[in-house]
Simulated scan of single mutants.
Amino acid sequence: MAYIKAISYYLPEQVLTNEELVKEFPEWSMEKVAAKVGVDSRHIAAKDETAGDLAEKAAKKLFAEYSVDPKSVDFLLLCTQSPDYFLPSTACILQHRLGIPTSAGAFDYDLGCSGCVYGLAIAKGLIAAGIAKNVLLLTAETYNKYLHPQDKSNRSIFGDGAAACLISTEGIAEIGEFVLGTDGSGADNLILKRGGARQPDANGHKEEDDDGHVRRDDFLYMGGGAVFNFTLDVVPPMMQQILEKNKLSTDNVDYYVFHQANKFMLSTIRKMCDLPKDKFYINLAETGNTVSSTVMIALKDCLDNGTIYSGMKVMISGFGVGLSWGGTMLKF
């Protein structure tokens, strides 16, 4: 069996408030931004601050908070879509910077909103196979470096940040069975074209999508309507599949922690699935959507404030860029 043993997270020092944001977009108001996406402020990585830097700080917070010896880590996973370099893997650099033994395995994997759940699945597999006993899962993104200055929608939603989770043979939450899914036919709905091998250089191309948003090849693009519809299509059946694989019913679930995409989407999911408001986590107010780190940040906050405690069964899930989705049950 595999367990979550420790969770910490790190947010950059720079904060962008709604008050500052609406100065750039006077057609908006602070109230409109807060009501639409549920975000009052978001943390922004400094110009010279990378996802690797954020992940390092999150890991060191975890080591200090839980008295974890880095030398006890025998595998390192980093989920990021904003790596420090194309090569080498940022996880390899972090192995050295964190003082993790050279006998440990380490690699990056490129996944977004479902990345935390996929990482837990990989870590559980490594432990079940006897390959590792203590897996350090790091998630880190600096999406704001990819956003066009005039992209008010995405700038209001996304925040930068990192989370660290230690998965081991014992701990505070047993990791259950997983449901994972992928639909690459929707890849174009959340994409950054510039910089990869298919489009290495900026081309300045832009066009208006069906929702009236400007789509720029050189910056991150999200087709909000398509991503919203995809989420409503996959999340309800995924929830049922998670229950079935873990031999549970809805009555057995004490709390739900889903990827913190935006307030409107989460509220729609909750109502659509008829979930009690007091069992469903929504809190993007001070972090925004931190992509792969939202679930771990939420779990850490819920543990610290007593919302989640020993004896509870918690469903977690992530969904988005890929398009991909995944979920499992945690037994605290």
Rank of each mutant, 00 (worst) to 15 (best):
N144I: 02
H213Y: 12
S67F: 07
Y10L: 00
T307A: 14
S156Q: 01
A132N: 05
N283Y: 15
Q260L: 13
G159P: 03
C273Q: 15
E19H: 07
G130I: 09
N144V: 02
D108I: 04
E174G: 11
G306H: 14
D209H: 05
G159V: 03
Y281I: 11
H96G: 00
L62A: 04
D304E: 12
A55M: 07
A58P: 03
D74K: 02
Y109G: 04
V214T: 12
T80G: 06
F228I: 07
A187F: 10
N144R: 04
M30R: 04
T17S: 14
S103V: 01
F258A: 09
D84S: 01
F219T: 04
H148E: 00
A64T: 06
V214Q: 07
A164N: 00
L192W: 03
D278M: 09
S324C: 10
L62F: 04
A91S: 06
T250E: 10
A298Q: 12
K36V: 05
L54P: 02
I157P: 00
L147K: 05
K145W: 05
G327C: 10
G186L: 06
Y118L: 07
T231G: 13
V135L: 02
E244Y: 07
L137K: 01
S293N: 14
I100S: 00
A121S: 11
M239H: 10
A58K: 01
F75V: 02
D254Q: 12
I7W: 02
Y85T: 02
T169L: 01
P237I: 11
K277A: 12
L220Y: 11
V73L: 03
H96P: 00
V117C: 07
G181Q: 09
T182D: 11
T90E: 03
M272N: 14
G115K: 09
R42Q: 04
R216E: 08
A59G: 03
G320M: 10
Q240G: 08
Y85V: 05
Y9E: 03
M329Q: 14
I44S: 04
L76S: 04
A106D: 00
I100E: 01
T250S: 10
D211N: 14
H213L: 10
I172M: 10
S89T: 09
G115S: 12
A45K: 02
E174C: 09
G212K: 09
G186W: 05
E141K: 06
G196S: 11
H259V: 12
A140F: 03
K5V: 04
F280I: 14
D151A: 03
G181S: 10
G159D: 00
L220A: 15
K61L: 01
E177S: 11
I127C: 06
V37F: 10
P237K: 09
R270N: 09
L275V: 13
I44V: 06
V33S: 04
V68R: 02
K263M: 08
C165R: 00
D274A: 12
I127E: 06
F63P: 00
D304K: 12
Q81W: 06
G318S: 14
K279D: 09
N305W: 13
N229M: 13
Q241M: 15
K32E: 08
R198D: 07
S317V: 08
M296V: 15
F158P: 06
I308C: 15
F230I: 10
